[in-house]
Design a protein around this nucleic acid. Structure first.
Length: 159
DNA sequence: GCCAACGTTGGC
DNA sequence: GCCAACGTTGGC
């Protein structure tokens, strides 16, 4: 199946692109997704090798700060079973886990980042979910054209 | 820090 | 199955 593209939000004071880079092999598990629509994208639609933008939310500047590849098949998010985790979900069971995640691997950092304002001003990107008012889905599909245009803005070859 | 928009929960 | 109440997200 053709490669697909995604946008994944993170608050950088929780987990930033530099945190991702500092992880072993630039790889981490994308824990803490507690929204069904976002989970369904990870569980049902992501494939190993898909590309994803890393988006920093709730900071200035709001921006796409780099890219990642989806690195594994979905599996249950361990934090849902950990009573000490803020992502603990007492209603989830190991037999029937509610929350799934994937691993992601760092592929590129955009320096400077591609800001939300740039995205808003660039023809061809006006349909991106991330700039729609009221949109708060933390994992969103991105079209191949959007993937290309944002790389052009970043001055980075798509990987 | 505010607050509008959104998603989820639970009583009925 | 509806919908009010609640909690959270995230731009500003």
């Amino acid at each position: 199946m053709a490669r697909k593209y995604w946008l994944m939000k993170s608050e950088p004071f929780e987990f930033s692109i530099d945190d991702l880079i500092s992880r072993k092999n630039g790889t981490t598990y994308w824990e803490g997704i507690r929204n069904y629509q976002a989970r369904n994208f990870m569980r049902d639609n992501m494939q190993v090798g898909d590309g994803a933008f890393f988006y920093h939310s709730r900071v200035n500047p709001l921006a796409v700060v780099g890219t990642m590849n989806i690195a594994c098949e979905p599996y249950p998010d361990p934090s849902q079973f950990d009573p000490d985790s803020k992502y603990f979900d007492p209603k989830s069971t190991k037999d029937n886990p509610r929350w799934m995640l994937v691993d992601v691997t760092f592929t590129a950092k955009f320096d400077p980042p591609v800001t939300r304002d740039q995205i808003k001003q660039t023809p061809g990107l006006e349909d991106m979910m991330v700039i729609q008012k009221g949109s708060r889905l933390s994992i969103q599909p991105v079209t191949e054209q959007e993937w290309q245009i944002i790389h052009q803005l970043a001055g980075v070859e798509p990987k």
